[in-house]
Amino acid sequence: MIPRLRFLFTAWLFHLRQLATLKLYIFDSVVLPVILATIAVRLVGARGDDGGTITTVALGAAVMGMWAATLSGAGGAISRMRSMGLLEPVVAAPTPLATALAGNALASSTLGVYSVTATLLWARYGLGLPITVRSPLMLVVATLATIAATAALGLLLSVSLVMYPRAQSVSNIFEYPLWILTGALVPLSLLPGWIGVASWAIAPAWGVKAIQASVTGAATDFGVATALCVVITCAYWALSTALLRSVERLARERATLPLS
């Protein structure tokens, strides 16, 4: 257990360092959210809304940045691992493949936290908006839960990436619908009912609700959203690990999985 956690940490740290050297990736997770936040806040600001709405919108933009980081990160992480020739060595090692991939997915969503923080700071100090967070502690908890949820969803996506090298385009297609499903871009109440239903199964959507609740200080909403986020995240982890095990088995049997 301890050695496995240590490897998880190493995989997280080293992947983060490797990612930090990739220019396109940095644009996605650092520059893009700030641009999105500026546009979103300007749109809402023009309507002369109160500080609470502005904060929610800024947060929505921040979370979109997190999505971009995670989806291009989790998707890219596997194909990068494959193209770096690291996928096969990790499969051939005693540590489960899921642990290495989890480290990578967490690294991507960690860069996402940066994007949340940067966006809020930019909205507050760059755009001079009245950002108000009722409960900073809840915000921290909700953000951590969202990181785990996003990483878990990334891991689940990565299973399909191991199976189908072309699934990268699938993850790119996912990026935009997920912004909508999480209610990050548009409040869910404005969308058709079925989209709201679909968003129930998306762990990070609950994470976003928890983040929004921490802004307004609604403790009950926060509790429910956080709990659901954690439960669904655990389900993702369990499902991913099980799937990865059978994917690995298939790869060894049929050799259809291009490990190298």
Binding site: T10, A11, F14, H15, Q18, E88, P89, A93, P94, T95
Partner: peptide, 29 residues
């Protein structure tokens, strides 16, 4: 094992860091 080729590392990281990665991967204390 060594599979030929110039891949199989975190190429933006140092040789020593890559050694640490593989040590942890193999659960070397």
């Amino acid at each position: 094992y060594v599979l030929g080729g110039d891949k199989g590392f975190y190429d933006r990281l140092t040789a020593r860091q890559n050694m640490i990665y593989f040590c942890d991967l193999y659960e070397v204390p």
